[in-house]
Design a protein around this nucleic acid. Sequence first.
DNA 1: GACCGTTGACCGTCCAGACGGTACAGTCGT
DNA 2: ACGACTGTACCGTCTGGACGGTCAACGGTC
Lengths: 187, 187
Amino acid sequence: MPSRTPSAPDAATTAARSTRDRLLDAVEQLLAEAGPRAATLDAVAAAAGVSKGGLLYHFGTKDALVEGLLGRLRTLAQEDLARMRSAPEGAARYYVRTSVVASGDPLQRATIAALRLVQDADRRAVEAFTEISEAWRVAIEEELGDRALSRVVQLVGDGLWMSASMGVVPPDVEEVLAALPGLPAAG
Amino acid sequence: MPSRTPSAPDAATTAARSTRDRLLDAVEQLLAEAGPRAATLDAVAAAAGVSKGGLLYHFGTKDALVEGLLGRLRTLAQEDLARMRSAPEGAARYYVRTSVVASGDPLQRATIAALRLVQDADRRAVEAFTEISEAWRVAIEEELGDRALSRVVQLVGDGLWMSASMGVVPPDVEEVLAALPGLPAAG
DNA sequence: GACCGTTGACCGTCCAGACGGTACAGTCGT
DNA sequence: ACGACTGTACCGTCTGGACGGTCAACGGTC
């Protein structure tokens, strides 16, 4: 039996979810802005406006907290995948465009936080990321039909993620998209 | 008085340089293979076959050790930049091709180690990386003359670095290169 | 050429603080 | 009364760093 959440597995109470989510928000923020070393239990609790005991009430261990973060990432990624497949501009363009940071996007926040964990050699984060990355690749390849070009599109996206996680100003997306050949016309 | 290297600033004795380099090799390896958390002073010293005291003789603080690593990275990057500009296949192709991991390449080892530090929110690592990345971009843009395309080339390279640091099997470089338009013919 | 002080390279141990986690008694809203 | 917390005190372990000691090599000097 893995570490359990205190509430029922299906739908938690509003208050519980709210605190739980605030805790996950706090880990994400600390990971993204200050790195894994700064994301201590004390710091996370403080950033969420909760006591350490309160944090440990929701997530019994630090591992459980990470698991919670990755779970949220998977959920958001799956939702994004659906949006991606039905995007009028096409999956490839959608992917590249949503790989530049618009601060506030929940998926992007979660992704960058997970990226930090990946570089901290967290096995589960690597697994989650590989899995999600794979799903994105499949969706892009489904649209483009060209393996090599799909790789390029995804590498560009990965590159954007990397510069995002470094806090570098991203290049103009439209310019980049224009320089990529073989993408179906937008709209 | 800040921590200084024991030997003379110009040419150290053979034995001293050897130990120093072994220590830097050890940090790189630990960072790349096990992440920043595993790169403790004890672990680095052990991996280099030196006692902790011995490590601290060469690098007075952990910061100094990191500084040493980044110094080595800068040197290697500068050497690579020269090779890149004189590469017969052209700077862009050279850059993409050398962005896939061939384990054993000193620059790649140092780069991946530094990438881990970047994600650990190490300011100096971010600075070093930004600086090097900028130099690469300039070299590519000098060759291609096209800003947008240069961005794409570099993003692809960054993407390759990212998958490398995640331990993912890299895509076929030649395939990727073939899917990139506008690159001057090789040779 | 035996003695000796110095120096550079390195070892081993110790310490303070931080961190993850436990325990538990108390509080507040519903 | 019960779930959702707060607050404090505490433990064991790890980590960066300080520190004193060891030892071989070298240079001078008588």
